[in-house]
Nucleic acid binder design. Structure first.
Length: 198
DNA sequence: CCATTAAAGTTGC
DNA sequence: GCAACTTTAATGG
C-alpha cells in the first residue's frame, strides 16, 4: 500500500481524474510527481515495437506509482495508462520531499514501499527468465498469492484476465489459455466459471 | 427483464 | 500467431 492519503493532502497533493484509457505519463517523460491511486486501476507498461505491450504492473486503489524515479532525475521507463476511470493523487517532488522531512516516520514507509517494488521486480524478472510458459505463470501467481492471508490451495482468485497475465509474463494469450488448461488438468490451478483459482 | 454490442476467451490452422 | 468462432460482461431500453 501507499502512504496514508491525509499526509499527501496536507502536503498539497491534488486529485486528478482520468478517463479509462487516458495516458497519465509516457515513457521518456520527466518524472516530477508522486502518484497514488484513490479510485480505479492503472497499468504500467511498455509498448513493443510490433505493437504488443509488455505489462510491468497493475496498480490498484491505495497503491502508488511513478515513485521510482523521484530521486534520480531519470526519465520514465514506462507508460502509465488508466485502465478504468480513475481518481489519482499527484504530489510534486519538492512537496513530497518536504513531507518526508516533516514526518520522518514516512521515510520508513517510503523505503518499505520502494523495497516492495524492487522485490516484485526481481521476482518477475526471475519468473520471466524461465523458458516454459507454465513456470512464468506459476511465478506470477505465486507472487500475487504471497501477499494474501489465505494460503489454502485454490483459495486465491487471480485478479487478472488471461490477456493481462500473458502481457505480464511476455507470452501470448493463446499460449496462456492453453497452458492454464494444461495446469488445470495437472491440478495446479482450478478453473471455476472461467475464473482462475490458485 | 431482454436485446445489443463490446470485450474476453477459445480453437483450428 | 492469426483469424474465425463462442462466451461473457456491460450497457441501455
Amino acid at each position: 500500500m501507499g502512504i496514508d492519503s491525509k499526509y499527501l493532502y496536507s502536503a498539497g497533493a491534488e486529485e486528478k481524474s482520468y478517463r479509462s484509457g487516458e495516458l497519465i505519463f509516457a515513457e521518456g517523460g520527466q518524472s516530477s510527481f508522486y502518484f497514488q491511486v484513490i479510485e480505479g486501476k492503472v497499468k504500467l507498461c511498455n509498448q513493443n515495437s510490433d505493437r504488443k505491450e509488455f505489462l510491468q504492473d497493475i496498480i490498484i486503489a491505495g497503491k502508488c506509482f511513478g515513485e521510482s524515479s523521484l530521486f534520480n532525475d531519470k526519465e520514465y521507463r514506462m507508460d502509465a495508462v488508466a485502465l478504468e476511470d480513475c481518481v489519482i493523487l499527484k504530489l510534486a517532488r519538492i512537496n513530497f520531499v518536504g513531507m518526508l522531512e516533516t514526518y520522518p516516520k514516512l521515510y520508513e514507509k517510503f523505503c518499505s514501499l520502494l523495497c516492495e517494488r524492487t522485490y516484485y521486480q526481481s521476482v518477475m524478472l526471475h519468473a520471466n527468465s524461465l523458458l516454459k510458459p507454465a513456470d512464468r505463470i506459476v511465478g506470477l501467481m505465486e507472487y500475487l498469492k504471497s501477499t494474501e492471508r489465505d494460503q489454502e490451495k485454490f483459495s486465491f482468485k487471480i485478479p487478472f484476465t488471461r490477456q493481462q497475465m500473458a502481457n505480464l509474463t511476455g507470452i501470448c494469450v493463446e499460449t496462456a489459455i492453453r497452458t492454464l488448461k494444461k495446469m488445470e488438468k495437472d491440478a495446479v490451478v482450478e478453473i471455476r466459471d472461467h475464473k482462475i483459482f490458485f
